[in-house]
Amino acid sequence: MANKNIEETFKLLVDLVSIPSPSGNTNEVITYVENYLAKLQVETKRNRKGGLIATLNGKDSSRHRMLTAHVDTLGAMVKEIKANGRLKIDLIGGFKYNSIEGEYCEIETSSGKKFTGTILMRQTSVHVYKDAGKAERNQDNMEVRIDEQVKNADEVRALGIEVGDFISFDPRVEVTESGFIKSRHLDDKASVAILLQLIKQIKEESIQMPYTTYFLISNNEEIGYGGNSNITSETVEYLAVDMGAMGDGQSTDEFTVSICVKDASGPYHYELRKQLVRLAEENNVDYKLDIYPYYGSDASAAIRSGHDIVHGLIGPGIDSSHAFERTHQASIENTAKLLYHYVQSNLVI
């Protein structure tokens, strides 16, 4: 079985989504992953961008594999301290302002102080603003209401808050009795949890993989360049483990592993895709093939940066991506099972 303990995976995932890590401010969550792997006696190192690379040696060290999942998330940054003591924000990552309206948030200053707040429309009160519901959700109309007694910009600055401070969103994580987990930032911390559990299983079962395999926990994927470096010249296959996108016209659902055949960067490697399908069918893994029209991955970033690799993309199906996300334990388990068999399979070329 690929994932012997879904409860352990969910616990790990709850821990991960509860650690704020917008792109550009990921040291705390990378340290968490680093410590987790250290307990398993797995060799790791950080790259200069702040990502983490774990190495598991295989029978063949002349040809390598790399698997990646990203731990950075969507977030925001203080753009302006307004005269009314509230904050104008600038978005980090590709999402819309309407998806964070009414969300609780945390502001972290450069000195490490943390303050809570709420992201609101400036025209929220229906008792004051006649057209509150019609106003555009954008940078000019949305602001952070800080949970401190501040009435002007000087009082905000006295707290230590300044332009450039990071803002993270409350994940509101919840695991239901029906097997769902709903939370912000399942993209891509669900896949990080799956990879960490896979590494643990490989160690516990003393699995000898056919090829030396690297696990890159990248930290800049949401801004386009998390996994485009630290790829050895011996690396043949590069598999990104990221979320499967759901919506009208999509095949992906919350109960299967999604195998991406094409996204905005173009088709993924045909032979690797066929191998993933074959492994799924031979091992009773429920899967869906899909195209993600407005999507890019660490694997496509690696291709764009010029690496001569075979690239692929799979992941659990995540509903309402870049908003209030949700997936089911069945999707987590199917993704884990496919990865378990993949790392023990032969290269496609």
Rank of each mutant, 00 (worst) to 15 (best):
A2P: 12
K4S: 09
N5C: 03
E7C: 01
F10H: 12
L13T: 10
S21Q: 08
S21V: 01
T26C: 13
I30S: 10
T31V: 04
T31K: 15
Y32N: 04
Y36E: 06
E43K: 13
E43H: 14
R46S: 00
R48K: 13
K49D: 13
A54D: 03
N57V: 00
R63W: 13
R63A: 09
R65I: 05
A69Y: 15
V71I: 07
V71Q: 13
D72I: 08
D72K: 02
G75F: 09
M77P: 03
K79Y: 13
I81N: 11
G85A: 08
L87A: 05
L87S: 02
K88Q: 14
I89V: 14
G93V: 02
Y97S: 04
Y97V: 04
N98P: 00
E103S: 11
Y104L: 08
E106A: 08
E108D: 01
G112Y: 14
K113W: 03
K114L: 01
G117M: 07
L120Q: 07
L120R: 09
R122N: 14
Y129E: 12
A132W: 15
K134Y: 15
K134V: 12
A135S: 12
A135Y: 13
N138I: 06
E143R: 13
Q149M: 14
V150H: 07
V150T: 04
D154P: 05
R157I: 12
A158N: 07
I161E: 08
E162N: 14
G164E: 08
D165Y: 09
D165W: 07
D165S: 04
I167M: 04
S168N: 05
S168P: 01
V173Q: 08
E174C: 06
G179D: 10
I181S: 03
R184F: 00
D187S: 04
D188A: 08
I194V: 12
I194K: 06
L196Y: 10
Q197Y: 00
Q201C: 05
I202P: 02
I202N: 03
K203W: 11
K203P: 10
S206T: 00
M209S: 02
F215R: 05
I217H: 09
G224W: 05
G227P: 03
S229V: 02
S229R: 13
I231A: 09
Y238T: 01
L239G: 11
D242I: 02
G244Y: 03
G244E: 11
M246L: 14
G249D: 06
T252E: 06
E254L: 10
E254C: 05
S258D: 11
S258C: 11
V261A: 08
D263P: 08
A264I: 03
G266C: 03
G266E: 02
Y268H: 05
L272Y: 12
Q275H: 07
E281M: 03
V285L: 10
V285Q: 10
D286C: 07
D290K: 07
I291R: 15
I291W: 13
Y292E: 14
P293L: 06
P293S: 02
Y295R: 04
S300H: 08
A301M: 03
I303N: 04
S305R: 15
V310C: 03
H311R: 12
H311N: 11
G317Q: 06
D319W: 14
S321F: 13
H322E: 09
E325K: 10
T327Q: 02
H328N: 09
A330P: 00
A330D: 14
S331M: 06
I332N: 04
T335F: 09
T335E: 05
V343E: 00
Q344D: 04
Q344E: 04
V348R: 12
V348L: 08
V348I: 08
V348K: 09
